[in-house]
């Protein structure tokens, strides 16, 4: 909660890493939203999973999606990079605009959408290849062929994901030899390597021990400002620690959305309060 107070005053987290970051100030409330969702309905076959979701996610901030299991927060997250398309029988109504482009429009290029909107999954899923290959894969498929340029990107991404110093001497080793927490940071580095604007995180720390979780949370704080981060989490304390804004989902509906501080201290809806106080979910 202490951290979220700092966020509320709109002071960006102090960047402890000394790397050459050109972090921009998180944009103020009046700026155009990075992700604008309007009247989104989403269906798995005949089952409706999301009901009339409308919300604006602001650039440079960390937005947490909370709610009980099966409330649709992961489904919502996966509509933003259209990963739900991979599931047969899904369909949607409404629109999602990411950086000015309607992503479900006819002209949308999934490749460039997913280049712009990176994703980190609940369970770390490194490719069964070397550490280097894992991070270099994204830039490679997007056309970077030059070896020294790739090495540069790999180093920068691993530095950014706070993993470089642990792996710099064994970039050729299998990624599967890393610990769970390291694998998850590798997956973050892999997502950063394609230089996304938005980073979606689907319970990125739920399979990790407290120490590794803390590292991931610190990392999110460091990335804040440079990337728009949307994080799904089951862990209320985590949402409080890392996020600027919180959206509470229940039964496929967006119940409440606002500053994290406000949601946690004086929620407007009874349902939100019950959930946050641990009365259900």
């Amino acid at each position: 909660m202490r951290h979220s107070v700092a966020h509320n005053l709109d002071i960006p987290m102090i960047n402890t890493a000394s790397s050459n970051k050109q972090s921009e100030q998180p944009q103020s409330q009046t700026s155009t939203p990075c992700i604008a969702v309007r009247d989104l309905n989403f269906y798995y076959g005949d089952t409706q999973a999301l009901f009339d979701i409308s919300l604006d996610i602001e650039a440079g901030l960390v937005t947490a999606l909370i709610g009980p299991s099966g409330c649709g927060k992961s489904t919502f997250l996966r509509t933003i990079n259209r990963m739900n398309d991979l599931i047969a029988g899904t369909r949607h109504e409404g629109e999602i605009v990411v950086s000015g482009h309607e992503i479900y429009g006819k002209k949308t290029d999934l490749v460039s959408l997913r280049k712009k909107v990176g994703m980190v999954f609940q369970r770390s899923n490194p490719f069964p290849k070397s550490i280097f290959e894992n991070v270099a894969y994204g830039p490679k498929i997007h056309g970077t062929k030059n070896k020294s340029r790739l090495a540069e990107i790999v180093e920068k991404s691993l530095l950014r994901a706070d993993l470089w110093h642990e792996v710099k001497d064994r970039l050729g080793d299998s990624a599967l030899a890393l610990s769970g927490g390291q694998q998850q940071r590798l997956c973050i580095a892999r997502a950063l390597a394609v230089d996304p604007e938005i980073l979606l995180m689907d319970e990125p720390a739920s399979a990790l021990d407290p120490r590794s979780t803390a590292k991931i949370e610190n990392l999110i704080a460091e990335l804040r400002g440079d990337y728009t981060i949307v994080i799904v989490t089951h862990n209320m304390q985590q949402a409080g620690r890392v996020s600027d804004k919180t959206a509470f989902f229940c039964d496929g509906k967006l119940v409440e959305y606002g500053d994290t501080e406000a949601i946690f201290t004086k929620p407007q809806q009874q349902q939100t309060e019950d959930y946050i106080r641990g009365r259900f979910g």
Partner: peptide, 27 residues
């Protein structure tokens, strides 16, 4: 080949063919 690997490739912006060629077939 675990499905999570396919998802990882797609999430990075790989096309289906790139995903198959670079990840599924080697694995």
């Amino acid at each position: 080949v675990p499905d999570s690997i396919r998802q990882a490739a797609f999430a990075l912006g790989a096309t289906r063919w790139e995903m198959i060629r670079d990840q599924v077939i080697p694995a």
